[in-house]
Design a protein around this nucleic acid. Structure first.
Lengths: 226, 226
DNA sequence: GGCCGTAGTTGAACGTGTTCAAAACTGCCG
DNA sequence: CGGCAGTTTTGAACACGTTCAACTACGGCC
């Protein structure tokens, strides 16, 4: 992922030290203030060395994506099956997601600054993001699979990707949210989970077939293009 | 808009020269290659002087937003009322939008790089973007107003904002679209306009009242927060 | 006309992300 | 042990966006 052709143990440790220093500084000072020079210094390493392990500052952040996702997955899986219907499962997933990323809110705004840049590795649709994206949709697939209630097969198949987009949307709001403790985001999340589940119910009605298929075809094209 | 307390004629001309040079360079070389130094040089002006008129490179781009919007509005208005139903009006609007921005595709990717950055003036939700955003939704309001067919009042009122979000989505896709002449975007646009109008029809059905209101309330909160 | 304050303009300087040629280190083969 | 090919590390250098103290040119007032 980071062009790593079998690093020696010592190199691995250096790499880890740099990543750790970066995450610390991101958390403490935000994205801009965490300069590559500061990161290198805290890691006890030269500037150029940081670039030996991470092609750019943004690649360093790619590692952050992976880190928080892993953390999230662990927490979700631990108690996912205590929740039976889709609404409860989705709510549990989204709630823990917000808790997982919360410590990084200060720097997340600038972290995600490149989210819309097609050339940036940070773009959620970019090749570099693919592994994390795959895992995230896999998690959402599990959320859907285990839920009771019947959903048409075509919609069910597309749901992980759709829910991932929904998750991205919530995160986008979270980034912008200036309210204390991100109260508004949590509120928005609770209500929108409700609505999303309601819409899934609606789209599952028999006479919705044609519109649903048209919508799904469009979505399929979209994700194929990315 | 650009903190301009009554510029003298000569100053106005300098400002215009800088903006013109910037737009030229953006078109010719893309965003990154159009350095502030190059812009200043082409405008026959010192580097510092460019910053006297535009607080930052991104503010320079804000002017681009305004420029293309004005152009778009003129084209749309010229023939908007030849189209009677909502689908035709919306399609006409979106089609001309894509044509208007097409010359800038090369640099648009990096132009919109900060679209997701809450602190950037380029963020469509930012205070700096408000004037353009207002005008854009006003245009979409005209698109909706003049259309025949009945749409519930609550939905009708929210439609300009919703359609603006839809437009942003299409633009986002356009930015990423590597297909020749942005063929895929045009295709996506045609189909999604269809779907959007269908969905508006669906949401207008009597028994959709509760869900529609829940959805609109959510959207209202969203835009209030921004 | 001469002066003064403001509008307009300059370019050197700063800190940033990033690159690169060269140095230092490491493990291995003779 | 001696050298050699890799891997790892270094820090100077580059171009960029941005800032700022200093300079110049203009327009109104006495």
């Amino acid at each position: 992922m980071t062009a790593a052709p079998a690093l020696r143990p010592k190199a691995l440790e250096t790499r880890a030290r740099i990543l750790e220093a970066a995450l610390d500084l991101f958390r403490e000072r935000g994205y801009e203030a965490a300069t590559m020079r500061a990161i290198a210094e805290r890691a006890g390493v030269s500037l150029g060395n940081a670039y030996y392990y991470f092609r750019s500052k943004e690649h360093l952040i790619q590692a952050f994506y992976g880190r928080t996702h892993d953390e999230h997955r662990t927490i979700v899986d631990a108690r996912l099956d205590e929740h039976k219907d889709l609404k409860a499962r989705l709510r549990w997933t989204m709630r823990t997601k917000l808790e997982t990323v919360e410590p990084y809110h200060r720097f997340a705004g600038l972290l995600f600054r490149s989210a819309a840049d097609p050339l940036s590795p940070l773009n959620p649709f970019s090749a570099e993001s693919q592994p994390v994206r795959r895992e995230a949709t896999a998690l959402l697939a599990r959320v859907v699979e285990g839920a009771r209630g019947r959903v048409p097969a075509d919609l069910r198949a597309a749901l992980p990707n759709l829910l991932w987009l929904y998750e991205m949307g919530i995160i986008l709001f979270w980034i912008h949210d200036p309210s204390p403790g991100r109260r508004r985001t949590r509120q928005l999340m609770e209500r929108s989970v409700d609505l999303v589940v309601k819409l899934i119910g609606l789209a599952s009605l028999p006479f919705m077939g044609p519109v649903r298929r048209a919508a799904l075809r469009l979505v399929a094209e979209l994700s194929e293009a990315a």
